[in-house]
Design a protein around this nucleic acid. Structure first.
Lengths: 240, 240
DNA sequence: GAGTGGTCTAGACCACGCC
DNA sequence: GCGTGGTCTAGACCACTCC
């Protein structure tokens, strides 16, 4: 099963942008020309470019053409895309993230967790707290709830490595969608102890509910970081 | 110039979901059936449904069909979508937002602002600080920079109403894309004075760079709220 | 095998920005 | 008027899920 053509075309155009073959704020070849070059229909080229536009690599003006986006000038070191669907380790760069399991139990879900994960009160969940370290430095505390029936046979071995990898490769499941909330709050005891937050250090929290592609809720979690170690970014296009 | 068919179809399907004609976690009619009903091609129906899927109203499983999403159980009162492109007033509900202009000058841009808004050092910008009130209660301080050449003739009258409306309707310009960063920080003097933030109250900040559809940077701004009055939400679909 | 959504094509017409 | 991207169609084939 080969990759879809529009994905391949998108990858090739992306490569050309990254390599400098197409320059910032300059026009791409028109869709008909690209279609001929790649030996595909115009619609396939449009689909490829639409994907790149959603990600912010190009922007279009009807009547004029498709332009390569200039680099965004306000990038920061603490930036983390708020639209990831991978584990922290792949997100931050392989091998930089390690984990320390602070809490790992199986419990019947509270009414709130029942609601969030669409569970009956006799369907147990894992209750997991992990300290995640980046290059050995503590930087996130993750509190995660997952249904046992959806993610069976979790153990500390998996938790200290990558739960994402386990779900994806061993269970062969795929994340479908996520609802995320970003908020600020005051530090709690765990923040102070493990992230060395001072009493007046603001905390940044990402709360999320994640579903599999088949519609099953698979994770409810909140991740807390010190205000000076993390920020979340979103790119939005008004045309979609 | 009528609205595109796929938009109309999407609106009709959305209406049916909202009205309860299609139920949560149940299948929609298949695309062929909907295409016949609406008198359009299947691709047009697919395009409509894709849009709804991106917004989270439905989810699809190849081989099975399209399901209506169940309501998200973790909504909160302070939630604000992080993907808006409207003014605060339309975002929060008409007429609830008022504004107090704390600062309004025209200046040559600092090197940082030059970079963010792609300006030469002799191209002036507005430097605007506004206190936004919701139902009369202070809840956001917005610090905004906009190029004078792109948004001419701004005045306090417009600032106290809706800059968005002015840009959109009077200048006939349209926002195209935005890069946003969400972060936590300690309160500054303005936060303490106008938002009544205590010294240890965390602040939530949204920093953003906005472009018009023609690629021109039009706004660099940061908006600060007290941690207990605001949170930002994102919905993501892994398929796009 | 039947039914679903995903992809792809060739061709057409339209709206938009510019000259 | 010309060239661009946006929309739309009819028809085809494929991959996936369930029976």
């Amino acid at each position: 099963m080969p990759t879809a053509k529009y994905i391949q075309v998108a990858q090739e155009i992306k490569k050309r942008i990254k390599s400098g073959q197409y320059h910032p704020d300059e026009l791409l070849p028109d869709q008909e020309t690209l279609a001929k070059e790649f030996g595909v229909s115009r619609l396939t080229v449009k689909k490829a470019i639409d994907g790149l536009e959603r990600k912010g690599l190009v922007y279009k003006q009807s009547g004029l053409g498709t332009y390569v986006s200039a680099p965004i000038p306000i990038k920061s070191k603490t930036d983390t895309p708020a639209n990831f669907f991978m584990g922290l380790d792949t997100e931050m760069g392989k091998g930089r993230v390690t984990s320390q399991v602070l809490h790992f139990t199986v419990e019947f879900p509270s009414p709130e967790i029942q609601k969030n994960l669409s569970l009956k009160k006799n369907e147990p969940v894992y209750d997991i707290i992990r300290l995640r370290l980046l290059d050995g430095e503590p930087f996130v505390i993750e509190h995660t709830f997952m249904p046992l029936k959806t993610v069976p046979d979790l153990d500390e071995e998996i938790l200290s490595k990558s739960v994402y990898h386990y779900i994806h490769h061993d269970l062969n499941l795929k994340f479908g969608r996520a609802y995320r909330r970003i908020l600020a709050s005051k530090p709690d005891d765990l923040d102070k102890k493990f992230l060395h937050a001072a009493p007046d250090d603001p905390m940044l929290e990402l709360e999320q509910l994640v579903w599999l592609t088949n519609g099953t809720p698979v994770e409810y979690s909140y991740s807390r970081s010190r205000y000076d170690s993390r920020s979340y970014t979103v790119f939005e296009n008004n045309r979609f």
